[in-house]
Design a protein around this nucleic acid. Structure first.
Lengths: 189, 189
DNA sequence: TGGTACATGTAACATGTTACATGATTAG
DNA sequence: CTAATCATGTAACATGTTACATGTACCA
């Protein structure tokens, strides 16, 4: 008997959507918001991609569009085939991370920039990281104080974010003055 | 008098190639090797991309192909237009970094995986990071011991790599046992 | 009843990845 | 002279980004 053609392997973005759909049907919009909250620090996706992947997965039967709610909201639900595909994806050995950090290119080619300009760029990015750390710390507190014992998996990913941002800030602080500027920390006016 | 159409803005990959070409003409092959040494930790590019960008930049006059050397080696040299385009690119405010870390997806969705499987995956990635840290530390020593005073810009980017890998390893170490496994560190047989 | 935020989607394009095809040079 | 390594390139495809087009629901 011919076995049915196995679904083609998922990409990480599609798989993440399926992961979120385990918790119940969600619309494209909701999925973007969920991804923002849950994986934004270490995986990025855009609205366009979400709709595209959802349409593709609906075509291959990994998800099913439910009846449209108000305002063209169309919830998608994961199917048994979708669960199976997600399971196969999750069982694979994950690839190594890729980091694309344009600031480090600017610094690496820093000899071609006036010192003051480089310092300004670096200072601005230091602030971005300080803000991110503050957000992560807030989320961390919330998670720990939130009555229910925190999900250890989500806690672990959040803690990676904390470790990363703390490391980034110490690195900024240890940069030589010629790169870092004099680091006078101006708070919001 | 009509001013000549300004060159279209560069992407970071093309700009990096121009950055390396400031030090003298290089072939596509050499550029891949140089990028590997100098920016691999925070920017990735493939051979295919390098040849594509080089061809495109040659077409717009940002680089010029020199006479082919032995074995079809074709060195590319940066042109004045190329230097100008690089300068304009470098002066822009760099975008925020993007991190794509599949392991964190696996952990975030860890509830859907058997604990032993997740532990094995995590252990394997811990080793990858330990090896990377060792490589960075070695490069750092080399840079500091290498007679000539180190280029502070390259030192700074390398030190980001060190900070990142150290943070990653502490994070691995602090993971709860159920995720981390019992962390018996097996050296190479 | 008008403006703002919500919501969905398409199109065009840029970038990144993988596989394939081809051949030259060099060491042994 | 032959195998391994160096080197260049193309093609096909997957993924990611940006801009545009359209319209709904809610709130003041």
């Amino acid at each position: 008997m011919p076995s049915p053609a196995p679904d083609p392997p998922l990409n990480a973005t599609a798989a993440s959507l399926l992961g979120f759909l385990h918790e119940g049907p969600l619309t494209g919009w909701d999925l973007v918001a969920t991804a923002q909250r849950r994986i934004a620090g270490f995986w990025s996706l855009t609205r366009s991609q979400v709709y595209r992947e959802l349409a593709a997965m609906a075509a291959t039967g990994l998800v099913e569009a439910g009846p449209p709610g108000p305002r063209e909201r169309r919830p998608y639900a994961i199917t048994p085939r979708g669960r199976a595909a997600f399971g196969r994806w999750l069982d694979q050995d994950p690839a190594e991370e890729t980091i694309r950090f344009p600031l480090l290119l600017s610094i690496g080619f820093g000899r071609h920039l006036p010192a003051a300009r480089l310092e300004a760029i670096v200072a601005r990015h230091r602030e971005i990281h300080a803000e991110r750390l503050a957000r992560y710390e807030h989320a961390h507190t919330q998670m720990r104080e939130g009555g229910a014992p925190p999900d250890p998996y989500r806690l672990a990913t959040l803690e990676f974010g904390l470790a990363y941002e703390r490391a980034a800030l110490s690195w900024f602080a240890a940069l030589p003055k010629a790169i870092r500027g004099d680091q006078s920390v101006r708070g919001p006016s």
